[in-house]
Design a protein around this nucleic acid. Structure first.
Lengths: 202, 202
DNA sequence: CTCCTTACTTACCTGCAAGTAAGTGGAGCG
DNA sequence: CGCTCCACTTACTTGCAGGTAAGTAAGGAG
């Protein structure tokens, strides 16, 4: 058995899939090892503990989010918002949800350093919402009462809830909810599709 | 040790607390037993398996929800809606979330019959939203675009997300989000407080 | 007073999880 | 050609989970 060179990256990818589909407690090193064709103990060579692995997964996800935000910087605020709603749809269609959505539910049952990582991810996503919503409102592309901070917090909750509840009734439920959220914000009915391709990009 | 007569009810109550605070996988029969001062195996006398226990917890919660809906039947639709938002706050202040919020996240990691129970709870809560929203709009106490079904689905997602994310930043985060949701719906700023007392009632 | 039922306890089993320690085969370098 | 390091495997430990089977103390019914 000749050793591979990309095992660490593969572990991360597989762990991410499990984390976004089933949550922290519902996957084991054995699951990852089996999918990779190696032994469970080999995971420990790359990641000492499970919290360490999961933290790395969340950090990688956060970096991907940052790259996506950078990639859509040139778009209008409304397109950025609807674009992110579409990214969420992409995940849900694949049976996944954002780690933020998944792990907030488990937070009293996962290690503190993982929770801290989730908190960091939430802050990034929230900042994106607040910024985009504020900008969209000033150019008249969106309307809402209260502060962008309050509205951003609400939109974040809606998306988290939509991702989780969609898994009870299928991806269409997510689309209906986020379309309704778009309508409530006065966003255009036509959603920007470009940003989803920017997501998958490495 | 003289046997108690209310052990079954106590198990349900303690299990409910753990389920709403930590989720399905993060509590064990041993936790419940220790809190009750009995041995873990004794739980099996009252509930054969963990899925059976959790199903019973959710059913009891659903019945409580039904009683609450019946208790607030005489209130205006707007008061019923803000009243339920307040019930959610009551839970969050106690470190809890609705089992619906908790278990939707875990649904790929829990037994199918438990998921079915969650689905049933979701249907009840959704029906309450849809009904109240439709009525509130017809009397001019709320305004939103689209169908009451779509709006109800969205409000359900917002509340689920608010309950979960509130645990990252404290109960105030929940209040801010749901106040913003109330504002978006055009509900009165003053929220009905009566319904929370109707919740705790047996 | 005895029997039966209720509500447990004690003792145990199985399975799986994370994690550890020591050993190993091949690739590359000197 | 031999050494060394990387990327594992093998074999193991610990711990806890849900679940089972048999035994038992207390209380009520007859």
């Amino acid at each position: 058995m000749t050793p591979r060179t990309d095992t660490r990256a593969r572990i991360l990818a597989i762990a991410e899939g499990h984390l976004m589909r089933r949550g922290y407690h519902a996957f084991s090193f054995a699951d990852i090892a089996q999918e990779l064709g190696i032994k469970p103990a080999a995971i420990h060579y790359h990641f000492a503990t499970k919290p360490e692995l999961v933290c790395a997964v969340i950090q990688a996800y956060a970096r991907r989010f940052d790259r996506w935000v950078a990639a859509v910087e040139g778009l209008s605020a409304a397109d950025r918002l609807t674009g992110y709603f579409e990214v969420g749809r992409l995940l849900v269609s694949d049976g996944r949800v954002c780690p933020l959505s998944m792990l907030t539910a488990e937070q009293d049952a996962i290690p503190a350093d993982v929770v801290e990582e989730v908190r960091g991810l939430h802050a990034r996503i929230l900042a994106f919402y607040v910024d985009s919503l504020a900008q969209a409102r000033t150019v008249g592309a969106a309307s809402f009462g209260g502060s962008p901070e309050d509205e951003g917090g609400m939109v974040a909750c809606t998306l988290v809830g939509a991702q989780l509840l969609a898994r009870l009734h299928g991806p269409d439920a997510y689309v209906r909810v986020m379309r309704q959220q778009g309508r409530a914000l006065g966003l255009p009915e036509q959603w920007s599709a470009f940003p989803t391709s920017a997501w998958s990009a490495r």
